Simulated assay, not measured.
Amino acid sequence: MKIFGVAGYKNAGKTGLMERLVTEITGRGFTVSTLKHAHHAFDIDHPGKDSHRHRTAGAHQVVLSSGNRWAMMTELRGTPEPPLSELLAQMAPVDLILIEGWKRDSHPKIEAYRGETNHPLIAPDDPTIKAIASDTSITLDRPVFDLNDTAIIADFILAETGL
């Protein structure tokens, strides 16, 4: 499996770019999965549901399954968050895994950047950033793409990963 990331600070356009890239790349016939890092507490389960009751009772893992999809929730219960490599090992084989977040990990990535956020660019100090996708003009020692030019960004990612 090939992996490529989309990194950047909050409100840089990462999620929108990820969504467009998944649509574009799967539309070209490739299989794609995604991994998203959350910097805050999140829950895909809700109080009152049977699966939530299982978790709050102390289950380490809860699997939900239906005819349309299945999901596995793992409670860390005070243990450290697993590294990206461990999460990737849990993924089913596909052509490409797109990773949102994990901006300080060593996988290749494109940086999403919006000028209005006034965040510094990550790329100048990070050689794992292979290109920038921005809504503003940037001069840098690597490719800079229009943040909304999804087809060109997808071409770049597919070329970088050899797909």
Rank of each mutant, 00 (worst) to 15 (best):
Ile138Ala: 12
Lys36Arg: 15
Ser134Val: 00
Asp141Gly: 07
Lys103Leu: 06
Ser33Asp: 10
Ile97Tyr: 03
Glu75Ala: 13
Ile44Phe: 15
Phe4Asp: 00
Ala123Gln: 04
Leu84Asn: 04
Ala12Phe: 00
Arg77Lys: 15
Val62Arg: 05
Glu111His: 05
Met91Cys: 15
Ala57Lys: 13
Ala59Val: 13
Arg142Val: 04
Thr161Asn: 06
Ile132Lys: 01
Lys36Ala: 08
Asp125Trp: 06
Ser33Thr: 08
Ile152Asp: 05
Leu163Cys: 10
Ala159Glu: 11
Thr56Ser: 15
Pro82Cys: 07
Asp155Phe: 07
Pro83Thr: 07
Val94Thr: 09
Thr56Lys: 13
Val6Trp: 00
Asn68Arg: 15
Ser85Gly: 04
Leu84Ser: 09
Ile3Ala: 04
Phe4Gly: 00
Phe30Val: 07
Asp45Lys: 07
Leu84Trp: 05
Met73Cys: 01
Pro83Ile: 06
Val32Gln: 11
Asp125Leu: 12
Asp105Tyr: 06
Asp50Glu: 13
Leu88Asn: 05
Gly115Ser: 11
Gly29Cys: 02
Asn148Ile: 04
Ile152Thr: 14
Ile152Gln: 09
Lys130His: 10
Ala89Ile: 11
Thr136Met: 02
Val32Glu: 05
Met91Tyr: 05
Asn118His: 14
Glu111Tyr: 03
Pro124Ile: 00
Pro120Asp: 11
Asn148Trp: 11
Arg69Gly: 13
Ile138His: 02
Asp105Arg: 12
Lys103Trp: 06
Val22Leu: 04
Asn68Val: 14
Leu21Trp: 03
Pro108Gly: 00
Val22Tyr: 08
Gly13Lys: 03
Asn148Ser: 10
Leu163Tyr: 06
Thr117Lys: 09
Gln61Asp: 07
Trp70Ser: 13
Ala131Phe: 06
Ala112Gly: 00
Asp50Cys: 08
Pro80Met: 06
Lys109Asn: 05
Thr15Pro: 00
Ser134Arg: 00
Ala71Thr: 12
His39Asp: 15
Glu24Pro: 08
Gly101Thr: 04
His54Arg: 14
